[in-house]
Computed example of a mutant assay.
Amino acid sequence: MKIGNVELKNNIFLAPMAGVTDMPFRILCKEQECGLVYTEMVSAKGMHYDDDKSNKLTLMHEKERPGAVQIFGSDPKIMAEVAEKLNKSDAAIIDINMGCPAPKITKNGEGSALMKNPELVAEIIKSVVSASQKPVTVKIRKGWDDSTINAIEIARIAEKNGARAIAVHGRTREQYYSGKADWDIIRQVKEAVSIPVIGNGDVTGPKEAQKLLEETRCDAIMVGRGAQGNPWIFKKIVKFLEDGTIISDPSPKEKIETIIRHMDMLIDLKGEKTGILEMRSHIAWYIKGMRDAAYTKQKIFQMKGKEEIITLLRSFLMRQ
């Protein structure tokens, strides 16, 4: 699998997710054979004003390369300036977010709101491509709502203006993450453009991944919520697509060890206070479906120290 001049190990990717795809989690997914990881979305405006938090989100560890940095914004000049800054970064690919449904993003005309303005979409992509020495990709949705389904139009604009791949989430902005993803729109986009198309939506395991590939003929798959608390999903999909083998789920012991390692990496990166706060949601995803998960999650959300969390997790493991 290639995007521009970037050679990738396989075509099973981790979707960019705010509050989820932090550096430690990306490393864990890469270790489980994920073909391409994306950062959490980064504000172009934040980088323009040299915001420390925004700049830090673009950092990539050597263990996760090649990786993509996803940026969001609606000002073509600022987006181009940020792309130029990212020429010096360790990111292999720059992705433009045109799919985020969050009101705090769309109210500024950013994220999926851009799909309502095809002329601006063209301008942004053209500006970023001109400034970037790295391949530029775009992530979109099916459309803003059911009355404005324009993924095909936006995909053609992206290709015409130099994007090297396009990811399509088969839901409208109005759907957020509810209902069923429309895979047929991914197939239609694939038939409409010649650049690689990445299918996104409702891939929760190997069989869904295979079905998405077969039904849409897309070039790659992007796993979002199916990867939350589940970095093992990538290895499972890759192996199943290779030879039909279903790898068994990780043992409770492996899950707890991975949680502790993830937490250690996050604390090293952001300090104990922030690391613990951000880790709480990850832990809830990791232990979902296990015995006493609801009680343990409730306790963890009240804890502030690493050692007390580890003690709780060890006693939780004993009950599995």
Rank of each mutant, 00 (worst) to 15 (best):
I149P: 02
A131S: 07
H169D: 05
V82F: 09
M79V: 00
A209H: 10
A91V: 00
I186V: 15
I105S: 14
V168P: 02
D90Y: 05
I198S: 10
G179C: 08
D145P: 13
T106E: 14
V189R: 12
A209L: 10
Q133I: 04
K126T: 02
V168R: 08
V138L: 14
D75Y: 07
T148I: 04
I125R: 03
E208Y: 08
V197F: 04
I166P: 00
V129L: 02
A167N: 04
W183Y: 04
Y177N: 12
K126W: 00
A165M: 04
A131C: 01
K211H: 10
E215W: 06
G179T: 05
N117C: 01
V82P: 10
P135V: 01
I198T: 12
A165D: 01
A151Y: 01
V138G: 11
G99R: 14
A155R: 09
N87A: 12
I78M: 09
A158V: 05
K139E: 00
K134T: 01
P206Y: 10
V121P: 09
L114N: 00
R187Q: 12
K180L: 14
R141S: 09
K180V: 15
T204N: 15
T106G: 14
P103C: 11
K104A: 12
E84L: 11
T148R: 13
Y177K: 10
Q210R: 15
G143R: 00
E84Y: 12
I149Y: 00
D202G: 02
Y176C: 07
E159A: 05
E110T: 05
A113D: 00
S89F: 14
I125E: 00
A155N: 08
P76T: 10
S147L: 02
A192C: 01
K139V: 07
E215F: 06
K85N: 09
E84V: 00
V121F: 05
I94L: 06
K142E: 10
K116C: 05
A181Q: 08
W144L: 11
V197S: 00
V136P: 14
V189H: 11
N97C: 14
K139R: 13
K160E: 10
H169R: 07
L213P: 10
G99F: 12
E214L: 12
A209G: 15
L212N: 06
A165I: 01
I152D: 06
R156P: 00
S178H: 11
R173P: 06
R171K: 10
P101N: 07
P135K: 06
A158E: 07
